[in-house]
């Protein structure tokens, strides 16, 4: 798989070319693999500490309308992420399938 090569993605544009999308693009119930979080040193570290590290599977549980926060499940824990935060987390969306 291509994303496993962990290339040096540095900006949004490059990332979007790699079949990846911000977490905010997932549908409710859809899963994705975290590729990278873009953002300040502190934010990226904090996301990693809460379990959102590259390669981990996330599932979008629900979202609020009007650029509201999102709730995701990662490593067996439900996390609420503000829209701004979530839009900085890039994932490779997985096909929607029956729980697997």
């Amino acid at each position: 798989m291509r994303f496993r090569n962990r290339q040096n993605f540095t900006n949004r544009k490059e990332l979007l070319n790699e079949e990846v999308a911000p977490l905010t693009n997932l549908c409710e119930g859809q899963k994705g693999i975290v590729i990278k979080a873009l953002g300040g040193f502190g934010l990226v570290r904090r996301l990693a500490e809460m379990g959102l590290t590259p390669g981990v599977e996330v599932k979008l549980l629900r979202r609020c309308p009007f650029r509201g926060p999102l709730e995701v499940e990662v490593r067996g824990v439900a996390l609420a992420l503000g829209y701004g935060v979530a839009s900085k987390v890039f994932v490779k969306p997985l096909r929607t399938e029956s729980d697997g």
Binding site: A37, R45, A48, T53, G55
Partner: peptide
């Protein structure tokens, strides 16, 4: 090597 900041590498 990893293309991530070091705290993220170690956290991973």
């Amino acid at each position: 090597i990893h293309g991530e900041t070091s705290p993220v590498i170690i956290a991973s």
